[in-house]
Nucleic acid binder design. Structure first.
Lengths: 226, 226
DNA sequence: CTCTTTTTAGAGTATATACTCTAAAAAGTC
DNA sequence: GACTTTTTAGAGTATATACTCTAAAAAGAG
């Protein structure tokens, strides 16, 4: 593998593990057993590394959100989308951790990210529309489809950040078990299900159940009412 | 006002404007026309300032999420909750911007934030339950109430971050108009409405309409299907 | 093997940041 | 008005960070 690609991979790994803010270019170089000078031979600056990582991320997510063209869309497709997206988010989790800072320090990235988001939202809307077409979703107004795409996006992109934020320990490996991440699928399905046709709901609920993971949200004691 | 309180206020202002990461203790002191030494007389370190700000935030949000004890809960209450919470989030918007870093550099804050979140989720669940009681929400299983609280929390706490992330300009004043923030209320209501009793839906839709703001989500052109 | 280009090391720099220390000024107390 | 406590200024420090520069090694081309 080329050194340049190795730098990208190592950076991604360190950014994910420790947060972009806590990883300096010197760290990256040291972790690879090479000199900072060498790193700066391959990349003009830290932003360029981040930008390249983002481009990979973008490519990956873009490859997910396609409506099948050769057949009708099915509930299982919805689950497959969610599964794929959560895996993708996990692999690039540092991006959504300090997104605002990344965007504010790189104008290119800001523009690209903006278009990326809008593209994803359109993709989600097309998926919803396709599901209406194949008799899964009840038909809805465009405005509603837009809200649904947006809410889904908000839930999906922030689920892992939420998980890390409520965990008692700082250790992310501990906080983000595979099971707890998958509960994100459960949550999105909870949002989706009321809009399904009655005859699809049982199946959806059954599929949803596989993604359920307790021990995240609180078990509320209704005592403290006020 | 005491110098200590002024430091807290100024810090909050600067953190919100520029992001905590971009505001050093020296900046804060300079912006107040005082010496860093003075600042460090009042606070042992930067974390302590952040912690104090968080405590104020916590106090504020906690004061919102109460079920009225003297009367039945109404749809208007729901809107009032959302309105209040979005205003609160706006006033302390730096917190959710780089939450993960804040939590990882202050153990106290991590624990407190964790309890705070769980408390809020319980609060939301109690509100949902109260609305079931007063014939607004259709009754649901506890697990569902939990999912709803969690999804609502995810949408609400990340709405502003989303807005900033998709705006072309870095200037937050421009990105976050009052109207666009309020669209968050619209989104949450979109999530809530299908669970309302039929006879309440018309009113809810009518109230929702006031919070609608176009020009955020994309107007999808379905051409690029695949 | 020679020449050119690419890749690497490693020392170094300018700048920023969180924070410390000392001593003077201001404020409060009696 | 003496004295004690609180508040302030301001210079200074240790450390880290992003990045530069020079020169040597390695790789490739003919």
């Amino acid at each position: 593998m080329k050194t340049k690609d190795k730098i990208v991979l190592t950076s991604l790994e360190l950014f994910n593990e420790r947060g972009e803010r806590n990883v300096s270019t010197n760290h990256i170089a040291a972790h690879m057993g090479m000199s900072p000078g060498n790193l700066y031979y391959h990349f003009r600056n830290k932003s360029d590394i981040i930008y390249e990582i983002f481009k990979n991320y973008e490519l990956m997510v873009d490859s997910y959100l396609h409506v099948p063209s050769d057949r009708a869309i099915h509930i299982h497709d919805l689950i497959a989308y969610l599964d794929a997206v959560f895996n993708g988010l996990w692999a690039y989790r540092f991006i959504h951790r300090d997104l605002e800072h990344l965007l504010s320090s790189d104008e290119r990235l800001r523009q690209d990210y903006r278009h990326f988001t809008l593209r994803c939202l359109e993709g989600i809307q097309r998926i919803i529309l396709a599901m209406e077409g194949s008799g899964i979703y009840r038909p809805m107004e465009e405005q509603q489809r837009r809200s649904k795409a947006l809410n889904t996006w908000l839930i999906v992109t922030n689920w892992m950040t939420y998980l890390k934020s409520i965990h008692a320990s700082e250790n992310p490996e501990e906080a983000l078990s595979r099971k707890s991440i998958q509960h994100g699928v459960y949550l999105v399905l909870d949002y989706v299900i009321p809009y399904l046709y009655e005859d699809k709901r049982a199946l959806a609920l059954e599929l949803q159940e596989k993604y359920r993971f307790d021990g995240i949200a609180p078990k509320p004691e209704m005592s403290e009412a006020s």
